[in-house]
Design a protein around this nucleic acid. Structure first.
Lengths: 109, 109
DNA sequence: GCTATATTCAACCCATAGGTTGAATATATG
DNA sequence: CATATATTCAACCTATGGGTTGAATATAGC
């Protein structure tokens, strides 16, 4: 049973619009309207993207009157980095590995 | 124009079955049949997952007769790690950031 | 050459994703 | 109070995802 936290985080970040929002939020929290502004897309579309980010835990929402303040929560990104780091060892010697495999499975003649 | 390489890699890794396949491949290349075995799922379903991983560049396929040998290409994972590392700074001081934001936007009375 | 094995291709199904538009809701402000 | 602003909710549309089954294709081995 893999907890779905990585599922949601990876899925949320697979959309370029959402990654752009995350990047924007790295510079500081913002209101929904502020986040809509750079995009050529309806307000509602961005609002939906924010809900996806929120569900994935990448973003926290605090209501202040009629305004919602959206702040980055980098914890899921940290989890992703942790997951990816398991393959660091690979980043240097993948060609060696492939070679070794091909050698091991070479037809014996 | 963000090249879609991260889109594809993040999307591919959002599925737990595919992450499991990647993990399995970290131990060495394998044939399609070998990769199907651990899953309670049709051969064709796994074959489709492999195509997704291949399209995302996470996996390389070399045909050897009727067998296809699937090997991990960790480069996209490296790219993801690079993307995520931009938020490392955040991993320690996000609470400070949130606090600062709330303070800055506190109603003046 | 015939049969078994490894694999993809194609068609289909249903759920979800990403976008739209048109309300509804809640809070500010003159 | 009336109106403008900030935001979600709901319904809809089309495309894609993940799975199935049933071929088709290519290679291996007797």
């Amino acid at each position: 049973m893999t907890p779905p936290v990585l599922d949601l985080a990876f899925a949320a970040l697979s959309d370029p619009t959402r990654r752009e929002i995350v990047q924007r939020l790295a510079k500081g929290a913002a209101r929904v309207t502020d986040l809509v502004q750079p995009f050529d897309m309806s307000f509602n579309a961005v609002s939906k993207h924010l809900k996806v980010l929120e569900r994935a835990g990448l973003v926290r929402r605090t209501r202040a009157g009629r305004e919602h303040h959206i702040a980055l929560d980098p914890e899921p990104i940290r989890r992703i980095a942790g997951w990816a780091s398991r393959y660091e060892r690979f980043w240097s010697d993948r060609l060696d590995k492939l070679e070794a495999f091909l050698k091991a499975n070479r037809k014996r003649d």
